[in-house]
Amino acid sequence: MVKRRRDEQNSGGERSLKRARPDSVDRFTSLSDELILRVLSYLPVSHLVVCQRLSHKYQSLAGDSQLWKEQYYNRFVRPRASRLPGLKERGDPDERLSFASKASRWLEDEHLVDQKVKTNWKKQYKLRHNWSRGSCAVNEIQVAEQATVPPVLVQMHDGVIYMANQADGLRAWPAKGERKLIAQIALRTTVPSRPPTSLAVDPAAREYGAAKVVVGFEDGAFSVFVLKHIESRFVQRYSHEPSSNGVVSAVALSWPFVVTMTATHLLSLYWFNEPRGDSQDVLESPLLLHSLKSHTVWPPLSISLRKSAASVSISMAYTLPTYLSGWVRILIIRILAIVRPHANF
């Protein structure tokens, strides 16, 4: 078959359908990766997602962890920090809440910026974004054939679900993959009929392949456990004696500090002297740094603990009953001079 001539194919003087090359030169692609990242830092999230579809190069650049770390901070951390008393933006550059890789205020997200952990910031942004929109996947884990009294205490951190109740003790399950029990340990108390009443997990990244957990009990005692992931077992490192102050209604943990709140409205802050290298399983009795007595705290309540190089901040949210309505009050306690835990407060 004889090949047709080009002029016969384009009969009638029609122009070829082949796209003409642009006259302009692409100088942006020739820039260094550092300069391109600088330009991409000014783009919103929607444009960053589009840039990742252009090529393999832009998929890597637009997915850079530092870009998404700044996006995460500006959307989820900075607005919340600007509403807290004493953390509002000021003229002093040191007090501004603008993003900085080393000087940013992260509030409850300090565990994400721990130097020993590499955080996937795009994944964290996507997770928070989906939760804010209400779009999430729901999976159920059957922990008992029938409901227990009192109910099971549950906390989740770093892909592990922690559960505590009187019958089954302290258990750990993976949040993803096969629902296989990671570890389990019985909860030993002086009175078997007094169940666990509060549970907290250290929000900091796990060190030495372990995660620390504190459990409060109805008899006023509390215990510290460590989940050793490599060995798939719990180790009880400390058990506090029962107290006459009543039920431990809430606990918070940011190692080496533990905060307890009892039913008699006694708030206590403890400090543990951690041996170097985490070589010992049993801890010595903690030092009681400070305690406060309140007469206006009503259940339910929740407490959190944040530490820095010079202070420890305890936030407590509790109800305040009023006529025909109820209110929630948030109390923030800051204890200074934690550099020397033995100092007088």
Rank of each mutant, 00 (worst) to 15 (best):
R5W: 05
D7V: 15
L17D: 11
A20I: 00
R21T: 07
D23Y: 10
S24L: 02
V25A: 01
D26P: 11
D26F: 01
T29I: 01
L35R: 04
R38Y: 05
R38F: 11
Y58G: 03
G63Y: 14
E70D: 07
E70C: 10
E70T: 08
Q71E: 01
L97V: 00
S98R: 00
S104G: 12
W106Q: 10
L112N: 08
Q115G: 13
K118M: 04
W121E: 13
Q124L: 09
W131D: 13
S132Y: 08
N139E: 04
Q142F: 01
V152L: 13
V154C: 13
A167M: 11
A167R: 12
Q184K: 12
P192F: 03
R194S: 08
P195M: 11
V201P: 06
D202F: 02
P203G: 06
A205E: 07
A210S: 12
F222K: 03
I230Y: 07
P242E: 10
V247H: 02
V248F: 03
A252H: 01
P256N: 05
F257Q: 10
L269A: 08
R276Q: 14
D278H: 07
L289S: 11
L292P: 02
L292W: 08
H295A: 06
R306W: 05
I338D: 03
P341C: 13
H342V: 12
H342N: 14
